[in-house]
Design a protein around this nucleic acid. Sequence first.
DNA 1: CTATATATATCGCTCATCGGCATATGCTGA
DNA 2: TCAGCATATGCCGATGAGCGATATATATAG
Lengths: 110, 110
Amino acid sequence: MQEPTLLLLTALADAPRHGYALIEEIATISQDRVRMRTGTLYSALDRLLQQGRIRIERDEVIDGRARRTYALADAGRATLAAEADRLRAMVAEADRRLSVIRPMTRGALA
Amino acid sequence: MQEPTLLLLTALADAPRHGYALIEEIATISQDRVRMRTGTLYSALDRLLQQGRIRIERDEVIDGRARRTYALADAGRATLAAEADRLRAMVAEADRRLSVIRPMTRGALA
DNA sequence: CTATATATATCGCTCATCGGCATATGCTGA
DNA sequence: TCAGCATATGCCGATGAGCGATATATATAG
């Protein structure tokens, strides 16, 4: 599970959204660091649909434009929760090790 | 930055280690969930060396076996710290959204 | 003498992501 | 009026990280 995919699941966790809205939501979540491309978006959505992690909520036509709304499925919710736990553990371990006082590496403490 | 790369930086954060020891350390860190293959390991190490995030601490011959020890460079330490911050934020956002009470999606709350 | 643990390294494949492109409509301002 | 931008979906080829397999070599255990 890579970052863009995780961001997609996160962006769907509180409410169903359509493709374009997901791009904007992800930009907001990431404080404009991640500008997801449509290529990434739609291939990721296809994959997540196939895996049963998301589902199509509805298809509409708004102002002559097709709009497909996606929702997080139960499996996707479970995946997101599990992934969050995993990452939390990894971050904790990284922090622990970063705070270790190392035995004079290149005279760091002189 | 993907998970295996992040685990490598984490495994080098408290002390320099050689390739084989890194595989074992990562297994320990991840509670045996991640068994890193040598293909992943050495290509990642090459990449990280080229990026200046790690450096070769020393080359030895122990019991007739070559041993190359890698150490985390300052740039790698900064990268790991930044990556940890980023992930921490992502996890927090995922948690926040997972805890949102949704307006009766498929009768979840009856 | 064979298997396992230690140890490094290369090669080719797959798959997610990425950038670019195509398509289409509605709105706004010059 | 018409150019450009926002909205909106989707495909395609390139890139690059990671993976499995394989090769090489020594020491030790059975």
